[in-house]
């Protein structure tokens, strides 16, 4: 796991400066978080070009909405990452990821690699973290369902397909997994 270069209090201060119209603060956020945000969007979208577009839009949104960031309601990093995640998910749901036409077999191969990539995010977590332990305490299918959704941006239907479970079962497994994780981390 790569550690954040800027402590979250500094990010909050940068957001406040953005709210006052200081472009250098936005640049500072971009310099410290940009690379990871592109990679985050790419993990969801599987396309670098779309990921860069998403990050570009997200930074304009961060600039225009910075005054709405409220530190009492969560961390600056959580707020910034949520903006990028939301935009990436919107692009994904618009179906733009599917624009690339690939041969079925190649697509299937990539799909397996992608699953591995997504599920490995759990192993990449800090081993001493609560999230690592609590995800580890779930059955494999619940854990996979949660990771495919959060890390890969998969829908209920896509997860059901990958895990070879009926849709209704998938939904209730994920719901139970989320609930168990909340309890474990409380």
């Amino acid at each position: 796991m790569s550690l954040a270069e800027l402590p979250t209090e500094d990010l909050a201060a940068m957001l406040a400066a953005c709210g006052r119209g200081e472009r250098s603060a936005l640049k500072r956020i971009f310099d410290t978080e940009g690379g990871r945000l592109i990679a985050l969007a790419e993990r969801i979208l599987r396309r670098r070009d779309l990921a860069e577009e998403v990050v570009q839009d997200a930074f304009i949104r961060i600039w225009t909405s910075a005054r709405q960031f409220d530190g009492s309601r969560g961390s600056a990093r959580g707020w910034i990452y949520a903006i990028v995640r939301n935009r990436a998910l919107n692009v994904l749901r618009d179906g733009r990821r599917e624009d690339t036409v690939e041969e079925d077999r190649l697509e299937a191969l990539r799909e397996d690699e992608q699953m591995e990539h997504i599920l490995s995010a759990w192993q990449a977590l800090d081993r001493n973290s609560r999230l690592h332990d609590c995800l580890g305490a779930l059955d494999e299918k619940k854990r996979s369902g949660i990771l495919l959704a959060y890390v890969g941006g998969y829908t209920h239907g896509e997860i059901a397909g990958r895990l070879k479970l009926p849709l209704g079962t998938t939904k209730s497994w994920i719901r139970r997994g989320l609930s168990a994780l909340r309890e474990c981390m409380a």
């Binding site: 796991m1 790569s2 550690l3 990679a39 790419e42 990452y81 995010a121």
Partner: peptide, 10 residues
């Protein structure tokens, strides 16, 4: 959020 921070920066 920690899952987001597992990516290798691009």
């Amino acid at each position: 959020l920690p899952l987001d921070l597992t990516v290798e920066p691009a």
